[in-house]
Amino acid sequence: MDAPATPLTWYFDFVSPFAYLQWRRLAPLLDARPVRLVPILFAAVLDARGQKGPAEIPRKREFTYRHALWQARRAGVPLRFPPAHPFNPLAALRACVAAGTSADAVDALFGWIWAEGRAGDSAEALAPVLAQLGVDADALGAPGTKAALRANTDAAIAAGVFGVPTLALGEELFWGNDAHDFALAAADDPALLADPEMARLARLPVGQERRH
């Protein structure tokens, strides 16, 4: 009998096109591999780490958008940016939580925002998706919904998450759509990260720190 697949945790925010791209790769695996889906507020993670998001740096913003579109085209995945970006993803995140963070909810919200290029920044903009999921718009503002999203985000920060999307394998973090294969390889082969050179990198001294 094959050993059970190592469980993974996936931290994501609907504001990220790379989270959408990774979702399209992750979703087909859910029947065979345990993955805990955790929506988080990326902006809160950036604040906690003292970082700027890619879309907050003008030339990086342009590059990031083009890179996402190129990745989508190479993978044969439909991608159309929403009317404005970055946008406030709270409504979409809370809708996901209110829908039980099911795979169907994650898929519907990502599809609306990134496959169809629709706005996802308010309950009004998301009304067709909410109807599809059977979620009342009032649920987005419910104290329990808000608390659950905050708890998800706090847990991600405590786990060391610094960006989205991130796949976590125990304490190991794999950031970005382009780390997808690396994460699955590590999940399938626990010895991968115990390789002597991999282990040495975890202890590599800092040669010089930039002064702020």
Rank of each mutant, 00 (worst) to 15 (best):
L130Y: 02
F14P: 02
L69M: 11
P205A: 04
D181V: 11
I157K: 01
W175R: 02
F87Q: 06
I57R: 10
G53S: 07
L204K: 13
K146W: 03
G176N: 02
P143F: 03
N177A: 04
Q208R: 15
L201N: 10
A27F: 10
D189A: 13
R61D: 05
R200T: 03
R210L: 15
F12D: 07
A183R: 00
D104M: 10
W175N: 01
R59W: 09
L201W: 13
A115P: 07
A3N: 03
R25T: 03
N152L: 08
A156Y: 04
K52H: 12
E209L: 12
L149G: 10
W114K: 00
A44G: 11
L69C: 06
A48C: 07
R66P: 00
E56H: 11
A55W: 06
P82G: 03
F87W: 10
T101E: 14
L167H: 06
Y65R: 14
R200M: 05
Q22M: 15
G176S: 02
L201S: 10
V77F: 13
A156I: 01
L37I: 13
D136H: 14
A92H: 06
A68H: 00
G170L: 01
E171H: 08
G117C: 05
L26C: 06
R59E: 12
Q71G: 05
A139L: 08
E124Y: 01
V38K: 04
E171F: 02
A183E: 00
I40A: 11
D181P: 02
R150V: 06
I157P: 06
P205Y: 06
A115D: 10
A68P: 00
A194F: 04
L173I: 03
D181E: 15
E172C: 00
T101P: 05
A168F: 00
A103E: 14
T6H: 08
C96M: 13
S16K: 00
F42C: 01
D195A: 14
L41R: 13
L79E: 11
T101G: 07
R211Q: 14
G100P: 11
W175E: 02
V38I: 11
A151L: 05
G144R: 04
H212I: 11
L8T: 02
R59H: 12
A194D: 15
A131K: 12
G176T: 07
F110Y: 15
P34F: 12
M198A: 15
T153N: 09
L126I: 04
L169E: 03
A44D: 11
A98C: 07
G170N: 01
G207P: 05
L93F: 09
A187V: 01
R73H: 04
P89I: 11
L140S: 04
A125T: 01
L193N: 07
L8P: 00
F12K: 05
T101I: 14
F182L: 14
R74T: 09
A158D: 11
A187Y: 01
L26K: 02
V129R: 01
F63S: 08
A19D: 07
F182N: 00
E62N: 05
Q208H: 15
D189Y: 03
V129G: 03
A186S: 06
A19M: 06
A127W: 00
S102P: 13
Q132K: 14
P39E: 12
A137V: 02
L204P: 05
E172A: 12
H67A: 09
F182M: 08
S102V: 10
L46I: 08
T6A: 15
G100M: 13
R36N: 05
D2K: 12
V106N: 01
G134K: 08
G120E: 03
